[in-house]
Structure formats: structure tokens, C-alpha cells
């Protein structure tokens, strides 16, 4: 009888217990990705589709910052929690597969090295001026587009910085080149 109970505990109880285990055991957080590279492009969306910027200038309300995230599925990182901080350029993010952008939405900050307007001096958050469009396609590709919705107070050269925060893990930063924001 004891053997039977032990067998039951090991054969049925142990696998079943992982379903209620905290952290990576929960279906929503079990997919840990190791971010290998971030790339931030500035695109000109004044035409029918976003295109490469010409002459390092763009109409402000036609600016798109496109973030490409290269990552790979690394479930063992969730389980161990080790090795994440040994290489500074790497960070892990845990998210629900279908809710990637929602997680990312909470975790980003865009700023510029130049004054945008009176309410947005250099270095301050410009999150209220950009819109991250939630899209299942972009999420699946690891590509996120931030649309600038407002014009600056004056035409000037900007360099935007995007910072991604991964609570409990790391912070990653990526920067665009310099370009001029034009007004209509």
C-alpha cells in the first residue's frame, strides 16, 4: 500500500504540482526569452508605407521609431534565474506569448537629447507623444513601431533614446542617429 501511495505521489502528484508552482511554472510566464540584440530605426512615414529617411530629416508627425528585438526562447533561464546579469547586454523577459506588446508597453521610455517643447525638456520622457500600436503581427515578428503624434515646438536635430526595463532582470538602451524633425 505504501508503495502504491509513493508511486502515486511521484507519478501523478509531482507533474501535477508544477501546474501550480509560482513563477515559470505558470503557463503565462513560462516562456522566458533571452534578448540578444535591439535595433532602433527611424523611418519616414510621410508616404503610403514607412521608408528609409532621406537627408536625415523627417516631418515630425510622420516619424516612426521601429524597434527590432532579436531574442530566443530560453525556458531554462526562468527555472534557474542564473546567468542573467553576468553579461550586461543580455536580459530576459518573461511574458505571456499572446500579450507581448502589453508587457512591453509598460516597460519602455523614449527620450531625446534635445528639447521637444516646453513640457518636454531634453532627457525627459516623451512617452505621451509616442504611440506604440499593439499588433499581433508585429509582436510575433519581434518588431514594435512607435508613432510620433505631435510636432516639436521648433525644428531641431534630435537623437532619440529608447530604454526597456525588465523588472528583476536588466535595463537595455538603444539610440537612433541624429536627424532633424520638421514641422508641416
Amino acid at each position: 500500500m505504501k508503495k502504491l501511495i509513493l508511486f502515486y505521489l511521484f507519478a501523478v502528484g509531482l507533474p501535477a504540482s508544477t501546474l501550480w508552482a509560482p513563477g515559470c511554472g505558470r503557463p503565462c510566464e513560462e516562456q522566458c526569452h533571452l534578448i540578444r540584440n535591439l535595433k532602433l530605426e527611424s523611418l519616414d512615414n510621410s508616404g503610403p508605407v514607412p521608408a528609409e529617411m532621406l537627408h536625415q530629416q523627417v516631418l515630425a508627425k510622420a516619424l516612426i521609431l521601429r524597434l527590432s528585438v532579436q531574442d530566443s526562447l530560453r525556458p531554462e533561464l526562468c527555472a534557474s534565474g542564473l546567468g542573467l546579469f553576468t553579461v550586461p547586454a543580455f536580459a530576459a523577459r518573461a511574458y505571456c506569448p499572446v500579450e507581448r506588446t502589453r508587457h512591453l508597453t509598460r516597460l519602455w521610455t523614449i527620450s531625446s537629447d534635445e528639447n521637444f517643447d516646453a513640457a518636454h525638456p531634453a532627457g525627459s520622457s516623451l512617452n505621451d507623444l509616442f504611440y506604440l500600436r499593439d499588433s499581433a503581427v508585429s509582436s510575433a515578428n519581434g518588431t514594435y513601431e512607435f508613432y510620433l503624434l505631435q510636432e516639436p515646438a521648433a525644428e531641431s536635430v534630435h537623437r532619440f533614446q529608447l530604454t526597456l526595463f525588465f523588472p528583476g532582470y536588466d535595463t537595455l538602451t538603444t539610440i537612433t542617429g541624429h536627424f532633424k524633425l520638421l514641422k508641416k
Binding site: 510621410s46 508616404g47 503610403p48 516631418l59 508627425k61 510622420a62 516619424l63 510620433l148 508641416k184
Partner: peptide, 8 residues
């Protein structure tokens, strides 16, 4: 439908 010179 996309506006010219604008993200909208």
C-alpha cells in the same frame, strides 16, 4: 486610408 505627411 493613410494621410499624406502624417502617421495617422
Amino acid at each position: 486610408i493613410k494621410e499624406r505627411d502624417d502617421n495617422y
